[in-house]
């Protein structure tokens, strides 16, 4: 698509997310935003900056520092007919609300025999790379992707940040959106394509030699690795999972069917991770298409270090992805 026929706008991931929240607030008066410092301070990551002034304190609500309380309040509001968007500062803090999310939000529809659905959206920051150490940096997406009753999304591009929220607000059941902290300042063109689904994975780069599966914060390193590999004559196909639950296995299985090799890149710890699920499904359903074992590049199995060089060493970097692909041979 050329710029002449399709006007584009360069914005940041943060602005895209803010626009998405604004769109939801404008389109549906039942929508409100709630969380720690989302109002007067403009959000810990400045996502909601200016929204309080625009929409007022009724719809942009600062909450006490109690994740369990305000997520529980969000669930109550959803049950009462509202469409709340709840922001949790980081996935590490969401542990305090795990009971509300897993035992209430995800389960109530089933516990009530289908009488009560919970149309709640929870946004939270995930991931490392900002030197905020072991209580603010983890990638615990896999914990939520484990739970039936939740939809778990991982927008990795400007377009997805801008467009995945509204269909999530419209979803009758709880949706969790993971925003990688390193992405907020990423700047990119917003395309005109208005259609965004919240169910499918996307092929971000075509290639026929190896499939690299990534999501959220690892899409960037995966794409960077694929460019380095291309320079070495290896064409990688890069899959962005986008939705971690339900997992669109068809897309990556079809890709592996073409390339016969797979590397899964995940900022979570290897053990019990999303990458483990992806690798297992490839082995279960595409075993006879594999020309090499499925390989994973994950974070080191340590609480995220504070020191910059140690944090960098612990994370899946492009060179580790390149090395993993090279090791597959062929």
């Amino acid at each position: 698509m050329s710029a002449a026929t399709t006007p584009t706008t360069a914005i940041t991931y943060r602005e895209a997310m803010r626009e998405a929240i604004r769109e939801a607030l404008v389109r549906d008066e039942r929508v409100f935003l709630m969380g720690e410092d989302v109002g007067r301070y403009g959000g810990c990551y400045a996502v909601s900056l200016g929204l309080l002034e625009e929409f007022g304190p009724e719809r942009i609500r600062d909450t006490p520092l109690s994740e369990s309380a305000f997520v529980g309040a969000g669930i109550g509001a959803a049950l009462g007919g509202m469409r709340p968007i709840v922001e949790i500062m980081t996935v590490n803090f969401s542990m305090l609300a795990l009971d509300q999310i897993v035992n209430n939000a995800a389960a109530l529809l089933y516990m009530s025999g289908g009488q009560f659905n919970v149309p709640l959206v929870i946004r939270m920051t995930t991931g490392a790379g900002r030197q905020v150490a072991a209580q603010h940096s983890h990638s615990l997406e896999a914990w939520y992707a484990h739970v039936p009753g939740l939809r778990v999304l991982s927008p990795a591009t400007i377009d997805d940040a801008r467009r995945m929220l509204w269909p999530s607000v419209c979803d009758p059941d709880p949706v969790i959106i993971f925003e990688h902290g390193q992405l907020y300042n990423a700047r990119g063109e917003l395309t005109e394509d208005p259609v965004t689904d919240i169910t499918s994975a996307a092929i971000r780069r075509r290639g026929e030699d190896v499939t690299i599966v990534a999501f959220g914060g690892t899409l960037g390193p995966a794409l960077e690795a694929s460019e380095q590999l291309a320079a070495q004559g290896i064409e990688a196909e890069v899959i962005d999972l986008r939705s971690l639950r339900p997992l669109d296995s068809e897309t990556f299985l079809a890709s592996v069917g073409r390339t016969h090799r797979a590397v899964v890149v995940d900022e979570g710890w290897r053990t019990g991770s999303v990458s483990a699920e992806v690798a297992a499904r490839i082995t279960e359903e595409a075993f006879y298409d594999l020309d090499a074992p499925v390989t994973r590049v994950c974070s080191a199995e340590v609480p995220m270090p504070y020191a910059k060089h140690l944090e960098e060493a612990a994370l899946p970097q492009p060179d580790k992805v390149v090395a993993a692909v090279r090791q597959l041979g062929g």
């Binding site: 016969h260 075993f287 006879y288 020309d291 090499a292 041979g329 062929g330």
Partner: peptide, 23 residues
């Protein structure tokens, strides 16, 4: 590799007689 075996059986090749270059 599983894929090599499947391909070999499709092409009528005996895997045991093939020189391997993989890991």
């Amino acid at each position: 590799s599983p894929y090599a075996r499947r391909l070999a059986s499709q092409l009528g090749i005996d895997v045991a007689a093939v020189q391997g270059s993989g890991p």
